[in-house]
């Protein structure tokens, strides 16, 4: 790697100030599983790494009055073992388990995965279906936004160059919401997703589906929700035909591409099957409550 300086500021404001001062020459370091590889391969013009993993507000997982707060520097390994995540958001735990391998999960952070913003980001769908929002630190302090607005396109978020992702919050009403996540890759370990899918929903006291959410990864320029497919099932009694109809609608809402891993057509077929299975499993979980 080409030489660079390394700092680990103790506050978000200090980190933001460093990024604002150094512009393109500074990069944010969290777990390093993407950045260090990039620096080894094409160093560019990076002269400063700002390590955000020692900033207290970026760390930890806790229950607040509003719901569950996951610090952006929480590692996948930490999320998988955390009692609150296992109890309230088991599908975020399941999605975390599909990321990389043990060693990369003990380095990689959930915030790093979201900020890197590849369409196949494994953590995105399970967070989107729980209506997660994010806290962003900038020169004027912190702001909050829905995770759906955070993703812009491949490797592009709505963060300004000097802004930082502080944490991810799951609203209290969605803790324990029946949900299911599925990833399909070409191997069981260390594979990029051909398709990621997640669903979440409640059943009301008459057994009708309420607040359905469907999200897909790796089949559009960014991780996406499927509002039309959600509308197909909202307020209806779940049946196999209905869930299949929603899965069919989800196929029309994604825009997969052909690449060396799979054809767009193959990905569309995966979307149909995986959306159906995620919905079916979510209904099963909901009906056992």
């Amino acid at each position: 790697m080409r030489p660079f300086d390394y700092v680990a500021p103790a506050s978000a404001q200090e980190a933001v100030a460093l990024l604002a001062e150094h512009g393109d020459h500074a990069k944010v370091l969290a777990g390093g599983t993407d950045l260090i590889v990039d620096l080894k391969h094409h160093a560019g013009n990076v002269s400063l790494l700002v390590d955000v993993t020692e900033i207290p507000e970026f760390l930890g997982i806790e229950e607040t009055d509003e719901g569950l707060r996951i610090g952006s520097a929480a590692k996948y390994g930490e999320i998988m073992e955390h009692a609150l995540c296992r109890e309230y958001t088991p599908e975020i735990v399941a999605a975390s388990h599909t990321v990389g391998a043990v060693q990369t999960r003990n380095l990689g952070t959930i915030g790093g995965n979201l900020v890197t913003c590849v369409p196949s980001a494994d953590s995105a769908p399970s967070l989107l279906v729980l209506d997660a929002d994010v806290t962003v630190a900038g020169t004027d302090g912190n702001r909050r936004m829905p995770l759906t607005d955070f993703f812009v396109g491949p490797r592009k978020t709505s963060l300004a160059p000097h802004e930082l992702l502080v944490d991810i919050r799951i609203p209290k009403a969605n803790l324990g919401k029946p949900s299911h996540f599925l990833k399909f890759g070409l191997r069981k370990g260390q594979a990029l997703a051909l398709v990621n899918a997640a669903a979440a929903l409640w059943l009301d006291d008459k057994g009708a589906i309420t607040e359905p959410r469907i999200a897909l990864g790796a089949v559009a320029p960014k991780p996406v929700r499927c509002p039309k497919a959600e509308a197909v099932i909202a307020g209806k009694q779940p049946s196999d035909e209905l869930l299949k109809e929603a899965a069919e609608m989800a196929v029309t809402e994604c825009k997969p591409i052909d690449d060396f891993r799979a054809s767009a057509n193959y990905r569309r077929q995966l979307v149909r099957t995986m959306t159906y299975r995620c919905l079916k499993r979510s209904v099963e979980i909901a009906s056992q409550r």
Partner: peptide, 12 residues
Amino acid sequence: DSLNSCLMLAAK
């Protein structure tokens, strides 16, 4: 925790 020492800066 096991990790890839090739991806971790010594500083960290």
